[in-house]
Computed example of a mutant assay.
Amino acid sequence: MAALAIRNKQSKIVTISAKLIFYGTQATKELAQKIVAEIRDMYHEPKASVNLDKEVYNVHMRIDYEVVSFNEVIELAFKNTNFRYNFIRLEAQNHVTRSFMGFGLGDNVGHWITTDNLGESTTAAHEFGHALGLDHPNLIDFRGLGNPGIMAPRGTIVDAHLQWNPAVAVGEYGGTLKPFHRRVQAYEIEAIFEGLVFDNNGYAEIGHLSNLLFTENGDVLNVIF
Rank of each mutant, 00 (worst) to 15 (best):
A5V: 00
I6Y: 02
R7T: 01
N8P: 10
S11R: 03
I13H: 02
I13Q: 08
V14H: 04
K19Y: 00
Y23C: 08
G24I: 00
T25H: 06
Q26M: 08
T28N: 15
K29P: 10
K29F: 07
E30D: 14
L31P: 15
Q33H: 10
Q33N: 10
A37D: 13
E38P: 14
D41C: 09
D41T: 14
H44K: 13
A48H: 03
E55A: 13
R62K: 14
Y65I: 06
Y65F: 15
S69C: 07
S69L: 02
E72D: 13
N80W: 10
F87N: 07
I88D: 04
N94V: 10
R98N: 13
R98Y: 07
G102Y: 01
F103E: 13
F103L: 04
G104W: 04
G106P: 15
D107P: 07
W112Y: 12
W112F: 12
I113M: 13
I113S: 06
T114D: 11
D116P: 10
N117H: 07
L118S: 07
T122Y: 02
A124R: 04
H126A: 10
G129I: 01
H130P: 11
A131K: 04
L132E: 00
L132Q: 13
L134W: 00
D135A: 07
H136F: 09
P137V: 03
N138F: 04
N138Q: 08
N138R: 12
L139M: 10
L139D: 11
L139Y: 11
I140V: 05
I140Q: 01
D141S: 12
N147H: 13
N147T: 14
A160N: 11
H161Q: 14
L162M: 13
Q163W: 04
N165Y: 15
A167Q: 10
V168Y: 07
V168D: 10
A169R: 03
V170G: 04
V170I: 09
G171K: 09
G174P: 13
G175F: 00
P179I: 01
F180C: 05
H181P: 11
H181M: 03
R182S: 05
R183H: 13
A186W: 07
I192P: 11
F193T: 03
E194K: 03
G195Q: 07
L196F: 00
V197S: 09
V197H: 11
N200A: 11
N201M: 05
Y203A: 01
E205T: 08
S210G: 15
S210C: 12
L213W: 05
F214V: 13
T215Y: 01
G218R: 00
V220G: 05
L221H: 02
V223C: 08
V223L: 12
F225P: 14
